[in-house]
Design a protein around this nucleic acid. Sequence first.
DNA 1: TACCGTAATATACATCAGGGAATAACGCTA
DNA 2: TAGCGTTATTCCCTGATGTATATTACGGTA
Lengths: 127, 127
Amino acid sequence: MGAIDRNSHEKRKSSPGPSGRIWIEGDEGTFLGYGRVVLLERIREYGSITKAAKSMEMSYRHAWELIDSMNRQADKPLIEAATGGKGGGGARLTDEGERAIKLFWKFYAEFQIFLKEQSKKITLNLN
Amino acid sequence: MGAIDRNSHEKRKSSPGPSGRIWIEGDEGTFLGYGRVVLLERIREYGSITKAAKSMEMSYRHAWELIDSMNRQADKPLIEAATGGKGGGGARLTDEGERAIKLFWKFYAEFQIFLKEQSKKITLNLN
DNA sequence: TACCGTAATATACATCAGGGAATAACGCTA
DNA sequence: TAGCGTTATTCCCTGATGTATATTACGGTA
């Protein structure tokens, strides 16, 4: 339920020291990033782009563009959406989407470890 | 002599795979980043904020703000500037600035290694 | 003292990513 | 068939960021 900033990056504590952002690049630019992956998870949770976007305080327009970007760059779509029908339609995370989520969080976790290691070295050198 | 983009991050090849940006956070936000460190080096080279900014295709105003931000957040100034005098004045990199440059490039180099390692793991998982 | 090139600073302008709102299409349900 | 909620798409507006431009301050030098 936490708010996500407008750049689709995680809110980071502004504690001095090494910091950074990571993402997975695709053919058209960013393929997977923190905000995108959280969006995927929210869609899995709510089954709706509209609800997922609202839960992140993100505009539907922006959410849709991110999903479209991911789907275009992936071999197979990460999200499959349907208009009309019961409840007006909805969206669902595919197996490919599930794999993308796992892939990114693994990368993300290793980066956090990397930053922590760097923090030890760098804070020593500051004074 | 290469052009630096407007966000003060290095121009990165858009090759698919793990990517990212790093910086060193200070009390007011970014303290050292790629663009800032290149700016420091250019000032060391030219002895002038004006010339350093031009060489990076950066506005003087922006360059000055970056320098001011770094100087305010560091224990001792990284850049010392003088108005008037021979040649109208100039700017010079301090020893503290020299250390900041080394510190950042070390961090940067280790991050490149980290990305390369991650690339091996991730490209394997894509197909 | 006049000149010079730079630092320092303020103001106006341009650009652009994203938000908000409006609208159409869709297909199940009652 | 009418209603519903969602996806999909378009247009306009705003806020933030950086550029461009102009002006002043400065202190050596000729």
